[in-house]
Nucleic acid binder design. Structure first.
Lengths: 134, 134
DNA sequence: CCATCATTTGCAGTATGACGCAAATGAACA
DNA sequence: TGTTCATTTGCGTCATACTGCAAATGATGG
């Protein structure tokens, strides 16, 4: 096929109400959270409440500390974690507000994009892979 | 290292308020949306408003129709798309409500998990990778 | 039954990502 | 300056994922 830009293929953002859905749904954000280990690190930092060093985080995880360092950097680059140096150690903490607002922003964008469908059906609870046909 | 279950590594879900954060943040959901092409397909179906056949979706995307079929199946398995057969063609549509409630559920879980940090700082707008130190 | 169309699946090639180990970098301290 | 500790990075290996092509499956119509 002709090589086009892989980013945003065909999201022909027609109406003004859904012009930013393509800007909200960033693959890098999902890519940062698509790994189970990284999810675990985020949960660990989120439940901890306070910043933790790379070593402290690595103690709770069955992978090498170098791998943890890389995972934390990925989450940091995605804006999910905050980092601060304290002497020779680096402390990571979760950017709750940013992650929460990012998630809500995506939800709002999708909802604004499809107003005709919003507010019908079972809109509560988490989704479960439904099979409309066996 | 000793081979533990890769799912949910170390999320030691201490308090009762954040006991479900590990259940909300599912890697499979993020994995389904971590590919730019799949994001494009979701946006295309979301902005379209109505169900589209695999061929219709594939026309808007510079990849082979077989690849599109696989991508749509992945999104369907993740509960992001709905499918319905009409004769010999298959129509996919976005499960707005499910995706929106999933995103909001994750946001709520994170927020409930870290109450001490909620409601401070710039909690509006999308996140941007900040570097607390250069 | 056979032909046709839409979709899915098998297969192989290539690319991306996770991982562990070892070496390098950076900061504090004697 | 040299040492020590925490963290990062280079590198090779292995697993997973994306892609296109071709064949198979499934449904409709002659």
């Amino acid at each position: 096929m002709t090589q086009m830009n892989k980013q945003n293929v065909g999201p022909r953002t027609g109406c003004a109400c859904c012009c930013d859905i393509g800007d909200r749904l960033k693959p890098d954000f999902f890519k940062a959270l698509c790994d189970p280990t990284r999810i675990g690190l985020l949960i660990q930092l989120a439940t901890s409440g306070e910043a933790q060093t790379v070593s402290q985080v690595a103690e709770q995880v069955p992978v090498d500390i170098s791998v943890v360092s890389r995972h934390l950097a990925i989450l940091r680059d995605a804006g999910i974690l905050r980092v601060q140096r304290q002497g020779k150690e680096v402390r990571y903490s979760a950017r709750y507000e940013g992650v929460v607002s990012t998630l809500r922003g995506m939800a709002d964008a999708i909802e604004a994009c499809c107003p005709s469908q919003a507010g019908r059906g079972t809109a509560t609870g988490s989704i479960e892979a439904v099979q409309d046909e066996s």
